[in-house]
Amino acid sequence: MNVQDRRRLLGPGAAKPMAFSNTTTHVPEKKSTDLTPKGNESEQELSLHTGFIENCNGSALVEARSLGHQTSLISAVYGPRSIRGSFTSQGTISIQLKNGLLEKYNTNELKEVSSFLMGIFNSVVNLSRYPKSGIDIFVYLTYDKDLTNNPQDDDSQSKMTSSQISSLIPHCITSITLALADAGIELVDMAGAGEANGTVVSFIKNGEEIVGFWKDDGDDEDLLECLDRCKEQYNRYRDLMISCLMNQET
């Protein structure tokens, strides 16, 4: 079984892989952890509404308010509509994000987020029930603002922006899931997500399956911790979504 690869220059038989000692240069600690302190997360208030837009099939409003921050966004679902062009045995989903905020995110970023969301909902919506049709989802970011007006230097401002787009994603997922459920479109499960440290993880099946993973920046060694925090948030959002849908039912 000792097949030698003669195309490569191999080292002597007793060679060991090189190992480097840990770098001693000091890597500046990132402050992104401080931007979303754990205390704030637990005190975050979430309010959910569905079915308030008349001319679409389903809609949802998500408002999140924590001590120093307030976010609200609206999702609307249109369809299933007929598509033109070649035959598709499954439905297709398109998601568009529209920024109603004070010019914070460039279109590239929003497109990235919407394609990320599309990836999630392609695996969550029961697409095989919708041949030859398309489902259009529009997300409108209405409000995202720090309530505290402490002066910040430019550097931390830019950090805020980069961490905020990831902090919006879980709310986008919550609102789209609610809007789809409101539209009566078949979903395999209620998708939800949590955000920790610029990392967004989206779950289904009670946190047993991951349907989406987004990472902006931040440290990579605490990935498992991020995962746990995301799952915690997901469970909270999911319970809220279900109670919202059930309240509406009764």
Partner: peptide, 8 residues
């Protein structure tokens, strides 16, 4: 059976 259901 559960009476009311939601996705998932």
């Amino acid at each position: 059976f559960p009476e009311i259901a939601y996705p998932g």
